[in-house]
Write a protein that binds this DNA or RNA. Structure first.
Length: 593
RNA sequence: GGUCCCAUAGCUCAGUUGGAUAGAGCACAGGUUUUCUAAACCUGCGGCCCUUGGUUCGAAUCCAAGUGGGACUACCA
């Protein structure tokens, strides 16, 4: 594979040695900015001290040397401390000849890195339907998994379902009290929504009870703890833990409703998992770990019987790992599950948790404790932390009903895609089935791109009223560009597989080849940063560039057959890049739209 | 109180080991179709990169302090 940076590195290294007797590995190229002529830029300020030359002199002398030393280096120009180097058209054409038929462009070979990574995402509670926050989590998790696969890693996607605990007992209790035996079938409600309805019902009554207690003179804190409904829910949780059959039966039934609902939502979101863990199976994990840590004096017992670890030296606080009654806290089971995972997958190299940044502290503590316990893989645990999705009114709050429901959102997006498509009227001859498929692809593409183009680490704003645009910096824009290429390819005859030597091409065509060349490096970079956003922004720039080409240069209408064939190949390769890149974002491409 | 994150155009966002005159989309004003899909292309408008200091050839980017916003700091999950 042709590697321009490596090629230039060797040449510049030679130049520095020969002209100035400087031996250095510190040679970095950046892409020449588009307002200047050139392909790669070397910053020469770096070498002024060792050479006693001005940046301009350095630029000129190195440039001269390079042009003489290798025919692929065609020219250069110097602007202040910047040496802009142009490679010959032939260099780029050689590259293009090599990759133009590759369908796997940008991707490393499957499992070629030898690295196995477990990536956890989604991990919902089972007491309510998914909302926009989960949507970001799911898109991000799925996309990062794709990204890691593209980098040659083996990825196991997991989902740790929070199927037990006080939250689901709340829904169960409310259903017992007010449900009258309602089921998804009897009500026509999607299972997760039905269960969520009773979670809301619980909260409503609970708040009323708290209010009453407060007017009776109790403090707010006490009232929140002593409301009868909450006490009942806690009792139910104890019954669950004791294995009470009736409670377990209800628990199983209501969870099964939720799973039926979630499965539909996951399918509509286009995400999936290789392995699903249930908290009811794992929540007791970690207790022996605490015993071990206690015997090694990593943990200590407090006067009241609880077990803790002191992390003050690391800038963290004391953390309880076992309650005084001997029961686990959340982090106890997290310790247990992490250890269990590395046990059951001995080849595992890395464990990634896709969880919102409100839990930054939790994961710092978790990884630190694993490290203290002596697990060498603790440093391979990574918290893929992402920012909250905010609405114009502020943060979403489940219990206050200020959430954007995932299913409703998808439906609205679908509707918008349908209306927009009908308005444009380009879908004659589509079957009902094809139309439905198209609306899904476009609406989901719009939503995924909208969310994934933002740096995961940053919080993002989502305004449901200004429903997502299909123009400009959007998923459909990229999909549209793809369909235009496919349309041309359909109309063209079979592509002649020829190599393009010494063909004279336009500068925009060379720019496109250059962008394709960058694709592989972007995947590596985005993978290292766990950031689909880097890729999303690359695709957008690439798409804009291709659209300019499409507008400026005739393809099918080009009369010179060799140029026509070249442009067809260039378009085909561009489509492949768009397709591959979007597939990493989890976005499907339509053939027509 | 302590810890962490964020602040770039009217709005939403890029700007990645410090590099050239800080970029897009939306919105707004205008233009492009007898030519491969106008969900496109082109032009214009729009900036104290929160403030102040520091580091150096060079800072939106690194450091410090301040201001404003957010999160975390449970024997919750």
């Amino acid at each position: 594979m042709i590697d321009a940076e490596n090629f230039l590195f060797n040449n510049v290294q030679g130049a520095l040695k020969e002209i100035y007797s400087i031996s250095t590995q510190n040679i970095v190229f950046q892409k020449t900015r588009k307002e200047f002529v050139g392909d790669f830029t070397l910053v020469t300020f770096v070498y002024t001290k060792d050479s006693n030359k001005t940046p301009e002199q350095l630029g000129t002398e190195i440039g001269d040397y390079l042009v003489k030393s290798n025919s692929f280096i065609e020219g250069y120009n110097v602007v202040k401390g910047f040496l802009n180097i142009s490679l010959s058209i032939q260099f780029w054409i050689n590259y293009f000849n090599e990759i133009k038929q590759k369908t796997t462009i940008g991707f490393k070979k499957e499992n070629s890195s030898g690295k196995m990574i477990m990536l956890e995402y989604a991990s919902p509670n089972t007491n309510k339907p998914l909302h926009l926050g989960h949507v970001r989590n799911n898109f991000l998790g799925y996309s990062v998994a794709q990204l890691l696969k593209a980098n040659g890693h083996q990825v196991i996607k997991t989902n740790l379902v929070n199927d037990r605990g006080i939250h689901i007992c709340k829904s169960m209790l409310a259903w017992q009290k007010f449900g009258n035996g309602e089921t998804p079938k009897s009500s026509g409600l999607k299972g997760d929504h039905l269960v969520g309805k009773y979670y809301v019902a619980f909260d409503k009554l609970y708040k009323q009870q708290v209010e009453i207690l407060i007017t009776e003179g109790h403090s707010k804190e006490l009232a929140e703890k002593k409301a009868p409904l909450l006490l009942e829910a806690q009792e139910m949780l104890l019954l669950w833990e004791a294995g009470n059959l009736e409670v377990l039966e209800l628990w199983k039934t209501m969870n099964s409703w939720v799973y039926e609902g979630f499965d539909i939502t996951y399918k509509n979101l286009g995400v999936d998992f290789d392995k699903i863990y249930y908290e009811s199976d794992t929540y007791l994990f970690g207790k022996e770990v605490v015993e071990q840590g206690l015997s090694k004096n990593i943990f200590y017992k407090k006067d009241n019987g609880s077990v803790a670890i002191d992390l003050v030296a690391e800038g963290l606080d004391e953390k309880i790992v076992l309650r005084s009654d001997g029961t686990s806290v959340y982090i106890t089971q997290d310790l247990g599950t992490a250890i269990e995972r590395f046990k059951s997958y001995p080849q595992l190299n890395q464990l990634i948790y896709t969880v919102g940044n409100e839990q930054d502290y939790h994961f710092k503590v978790l990884f630190k404790i694993l490290d203290r316990l002596g697990y060498h893989w603790a440093k391979e645990c990574y918290h893929l932390s992402y920012g909250m999705v905010e609405l114009p009114e502020g943060k979403m709050k489940s219990r206050e009903g200020t959430v954007v429901d995932a299913d409703e959102l998808l439906e609205e997006m679908y509707e918008t895609a349908r209306l927009t498509t009908e308005e444009l009227g380009k879908v004659e001859g589509f079957t009902e089935f094809e139309l439905d498929n198209l609306y899904r692809i476009i609406s989901l593409g719009a939503l995924k791109y909208f969310i994934l183009k933002v740096d995961p680490k940053k919080k993002m704003m989502f305004d449901p009223k200004e429903s997502i645009d299909f123009n400009g910096h959007t998923g459909p824009f990229i999909q549209y560009t793809y369909t235009r290429i496919k349309s041309i390819l359909r109309k063209s005859e079979n592509l002649l597989d020829e190599n393009f030597d010494s063909l004279s091409i336009q500068s925009i065509e060379k720019e496109i080849i250059r962008f394709i060349y960058d694709f592989e490096a972007i995947i590596v970079e985005a993978g290292k940063a766990y950031s689909p956003a880097l890729l999303a922004n690359y695709i957008y720039e690439f798409t804009k560039l291709y659209n300019r080409f499409y507008h400026e240069c005739p393809i099918l209408k080009e009369e010179n057959s060799q140029i026509r064939n070249f442009r067809l190949h260039l378009s085909k390769a561009s489509a492949q890049v768009l397709y591959n890149a979007m597939s990493i974002l989890g976005i499907t491409m339509p053939e027509r739209m």
